[in-house]
Design a protein around this nucleic acid. Structure first.
Lengths: 190, 190
DNA sequence: ATCGTTGGTGAACAAATGTTTACCCTGATT
DNA sequence: AATCAGGGTAAACATTTGTTCACCAACGAT
């Protein structure tokens, strides 16, 4: 009956083991005496969209970790956290990362981009294949030093602009190597 | 020998399937004709610390997605503390959401929290069960209007403080309803 | 030249796994 | 009172899986 508690147990199992339980293990987990009960449970979880099967029929997690209702805007009227609409459920992994193979994570240290809302301790996602456009925030190596700055190219001359008046603009002379473009900023409290 | 290329293939497999390959699959992946070759490969990957076995002897990833000596970026001082290869292992869903059942998403509109690095258009994760502490950013309904502000309670008197000098502090008189605590801020460019 | 190691093939096999089929109980519906 | 669906048990079974054993080719070091 309670798929919620089942999900909870499966989640903790997956967190620990980094894999989904077998039917036998799932049965144990749920105190079922029969594998088949686990099998049926899995079916239900698939039909409710929490799990799915790969090409070989094996169970893999789907929405297992991100079933978040996405309600409207803070401003007006707002929210009794309404009915959870499946269509609005979001996996952050999919939402944030378009190119998993070329994306990596950086921990931000320093306050040179604070006026862009990037604080010390934030996490930043970098795509190293994405083409750089003016106004993008990039991670770059200038004359041997790595920084994170706004990127501006005017008449062929690149300027790296910090988002903090305390720091200077940079006009790279010798080397300028772009590690990638900041595609996302994440901050977690607590 | 090519444990590097093996790791690469295993990684992409894991990213797609969200599970490790069986020995048969690993053999196929590596163009081995024999499962045993895969078995031995796995042994090696275990002894080199990339994989490990759980209590039941099943393979689980260990250092599979751990920080790699990626050229350049790690080296010189600035922005990076650690670089990690991105994987579904570090699922943002898991990382960001502790209590899936009580967490929901809001789109931020307005600039009243801009000095806290929360900009118009950002996405914010709210936990509605988490206890509110002083200094937390909360989503609250004051006298019928919903806002996002810092929460301060001094001698029983609650003050809601914006992170923008343009706006006034709020001393709720009548109703004060807290929808939840901001646990995370997400901004996506492009 | 030979020896030992590394990395692979191939076959074999017990145990575990996914899945099906049949049956049962309980609470709700009619 | 009869029926029905949901959620569980129990048993059965083909397939797959992990693992072992024996063997082999290539190669570097001795």
């Amino acid at each position: 009956m309670n798929t919620t508690i089942a999900l909870k147990k499966i989640r903790t199992f997956f967190r620990k083991q980094k894999r989904l339980p077998t039917y036998q293990e799932l049965a144990d987990l749920m105190d079922f005496a029969s594998k088949n009960a686990a099998f049926k449970l899995a079916q239900k979880l698939i039909s409710t969209g929490y799990l799915e099967r790969d090409e070989k029929g094996k169970l893999i997690p789907k929405r297992l970790f991100a079933p978040l209702p996405h309600s409207g805007i803070v401003a007006a009227g707002f929210p009794t956290v309404a009915e959870e609409e499946l269509s609005d459920l979001v996996s952050f992994d999919e939402y944030l990362v378009n190119n998993p193979d070329s994306t990596f994570i950086l921990n931000v240290s320093g306050d040179s981009m604070i006026d862009a809302g990037i604080h010390d301790g934030d996490i930043v996602l970098i795509d190293r294949t994405q083409p750089v456009k003016n106004g993008d925030i990039v991670v770059a190596s200038v004359d041997g030093e790595w920084t994170m700055k706004y990127y501006h190219k005017i008449n062929g001359a690149v300027t790296l602009v910090p988002a903090n008046k305390k720091y200077q603009k940079i006009h790279p002379k010798e080397t300028l190597e772009i590690a990638g473009v900041v595609i996302s900023v994440i901050r977690k409290y607590h």
